[in-house]
Amino acid sequence: MLDEPPSQLDGRLRAELRHELHLLQRRLRKTMIYVTHDQAEALTLADRLVVMDRGLVQQVDRPLAVYERPINRFVAAFLGWPAMNFLEGRLEGCDGEMCFACPPLGVKLNLGAGKAKDWAAHAGHEVTLGIRPEDVVPVSPGRGALVMQVVMIEALGSACLVTLERQGWQATARFDLRQGVEQQQAIEVCFQMEHAHLFDRQTGIALSSGPRRAGG
């Protein structure tokens, strides 16, 4: 059992040790229990990932499965950097399909073709929409997308983290730096709803998660 072995090291040494541990485990073919709060370590080292909250196991699965199909809001918020964006609203029927609606923000998002049958029983329920930063995508003006204001830009080399705001609600997006967004600029974005997550507002239990991403 390894309990956060690189916790006192700087970023570069942590990455090197993580790489060496990964190679060592593969070479020895021994089961290791690795305790960590570092998401990069958890996602890169684990064959099976166990997420715990206050001593209780929340989910056990392959790392990519936990990332793409979190069982509840806690797991969704805990795993992934930057953290998943959350928006409160309700499920409504719209033109034979299902939509996520948040009237205070003027948001109404179609959950996609083929969802009506699956979601008919949840129509009218209060839910939380979860969308990861990589699934917030800038689009060309005039496409009827969501208009949000750029509040802050954090450069990360070839990519950047962009804090967006709409009527007091903030969301984080991960853009290509070459897309050229600017501070205080109003831009249009769309949410890739095929990768969206829905959680029961009261219990936090996942109602739906998007399908696997390409290569997943």
Rank of each mutant, 00 (worst) to 15 (best):
E126M: 04
Q167W: 01
P70C: 10
T36Y: 14
A159E: 11
A77L: 14
K108Q: 06
G80F: 08
L109Q: 02
P6G: 03
L79C: 10
T203K: 07
H197R: 06
L177S: 09
V66E: 13
D200T: 00
L164C: 14
G180C: 04
H197C: 09
L64W: 09
R29A: 05
L43Q: 06
A76V: 11
E134K: 11
W81T: 14
I33K: 14
E41W: 04
R18S: 07
E182M: 05
R29V: 05
Q183R: 13
V189L: 10
G157K: 01
R14N: 02
K30S: 06
W119C: 02
P103I: 02
Q58N: 12
H195N: 12
V137G: 10
V57I: 15
Q8H: 00
D53A: 12
R201E: 14
W169E: 12
F199R: 07
R132D: 10
P211L: 03
M193A: 09
A46G: 11
A116F: 00
C160Q: 12
F78I: 15
A123G: 00
G216W: 10
A121T: 00
T44V: 05
A46K: 12
T128C: 12
N72G: 10
F74M: 11
R201D: 14
A171K: 12
L91W: 03
Q184S: 14
S140C: 06
G130R: 04
E165R: 15
R212S: 13
L156G: 02
C190V: 13
D200G: 08
S208G: 01
L87H: 07
G130N: 04
R178F: 00
D95M: 06
R143E: 09
G142S: 03
A77N: 14
S140Y: 00
A113D: 02
R178Q: 09
M193N: 07
E4H: 06
E194M: 08
L79H: 09
H197D: 04
G112W: 00
N85G: 11
V57A: 14
A214G: 15
V57P: 10
W119Q: 03
G130F: 04
L13M: 01
R48I: 15
A76Y: 12
L45C: 10
G215S: 15
A101G: 01
L17C: 07
Y67A: 13
A83I: 11
L21T: 02
L17A: 06
L56P: 04
C94W: 07
Q39E: 13
P211S: 06
A65L: 11
M1L: 12
